[in-house]
Amino acid sequence: MLDTVVVIGTDGLIYAAWLFLIALGLSLIYGVLRVLNIAHGSFYALGAYGAASLIGLYGRQDLWLYGIYLMLPLAALAVGGTVGPLVERGVLRWMYAREPVYQLLATYALFLIFEDLVKLIWGVDPIYAYAPYTLLGEVSIGAITYPAYSLLLIGTAVVVGVLVGVFIRRSRTGRVVVAMIEDPEMSTALGVDVPRMSVLAFTLGTVLAALGGAMTAPMIAVMPGIGAEVIVLAFAVVVIGGLGSLEGAAIGALLIGLLRAATVHLIPVLELFVIYLVMALVLILRPRGLWGRLEIRRL
């Protein structure tokens, strides 16, 4: 019994960490820019492809074995740092004043373009980059063996969450971002450089999405279509947690992660259903999400 609880807890945390990494950027971008970014899935996929390529490249050199893990954040920074500003300045800034439906269409169009771009650059054959997945060995928790990489995933999620939290609450730039989230008009009136902040926030969101992809790359066959799968999940997480909230993304991810793990272990047929059940319940009982505080203040 205790064993089952421990295993469910561990599995839940691993899945929650992964969900948090893929959902945080989406939530942040919505919070600051009020854009529901379908292209989030593309940034995830680009991050995964970037990481797979860098891991492959690094693996072929005769370098420090564990340096391969540096390729993951490096890929995220490289992808997010270039694609983010390009997309924000090139496309999204023309969309802010328009109806949300235009933003959805524009980001969906971007998603389709990136999907083809990925195929142009990397082809349709899967790429494997699982060296980092196995390199750290295994850990036994209860009667079950886990790859140490899964714990690294949890650690990364915690560190990223704390860093983003500290950035938003403590740094001057972060506070300006919060001011923009809470009252965009007033902050503009007070002289906030909105375009600069928009690029910054969007790029940060993109880097986070790419990091989610980069951290996932070692566990999967990196291939076309992987981006589409995470959008729905990421949306579910941020809707449950409350759009635009860091704590919300964390709570949403934990809730889904733990409930899903419990379902897989106890009533596996309901696995697919449970995520959407939670989402529906939250939307009925608390339409702004569990942590939708910022939304309420905005009224």
Binding site: I14, Y146, V264, H265
Partner: peptide
């Protein structure tokens, strides 16, 4: 055990635990 993860789920950590258990 009868596991039915979502098509293209990609991440199977929990299912593997359930099968190990």
């Amino acid at each position: 055990s009868e596991q039915f993860p979502k098509l293209f789920a990609g991440e199977f950590s929990t299912e593997i635990s359930a099968l190990l258990a």
